[in-house]
């Protein structure tokens, strides 16, 4: 099973678990799996259209899925998928 690393701000929705296992075969399935297991997490992962929320980066190993096959990026049983919040902002 692949491992998903949950960032600190989202752990309150995963019973404080920082690492979860998933049988998913690709990134989209992994996020759906998490959304089903932790319903309160869903709105912080996916928007109303079911797309990955803006200001959220997903890495498989060291690679950003934007440089791979986006949500269809396959994940092997020993893969590590990291959910990484995009930290940004600034004055008006």
């Amino acid at each position: 099973m692949a491992t998903v690393i949950i960032p600190t701000p989202l752990r309150k929705f995963t019973d404080n678990e920082s690492r979860l296992s998933t049988p998913a075969a690709n990134v989209a399935e992994a996020l759906q799996d998490l959304a089903i297991r932790f319903p309160n997490l869903k709105k912080h992962l996916l928007d109303d259209q079911g797309q990955i929320r803006g200001f959220l980066n997903i890495f498989v190993g060291d690679a950003d899925i934007r440089d791979l096959a986006l949500e269809q990026t396959p994940i092997s049983a020993d893969a590590v998928l990291s959910i990484v919040p995009a930290i940004a902002g600034g004055r008006q």
């Binding site: 960032p7 701000p9 309150k12 912080h44 803006g54 930290i87 902002g89 600034g90």
Partner: peptide, 11 residues
Amino acid sequence: SEQDRQAAQPF
């Protein structure tokens, strides 16, 4: 700002 809000994370 609105930029701050859009990028903000819970917790």
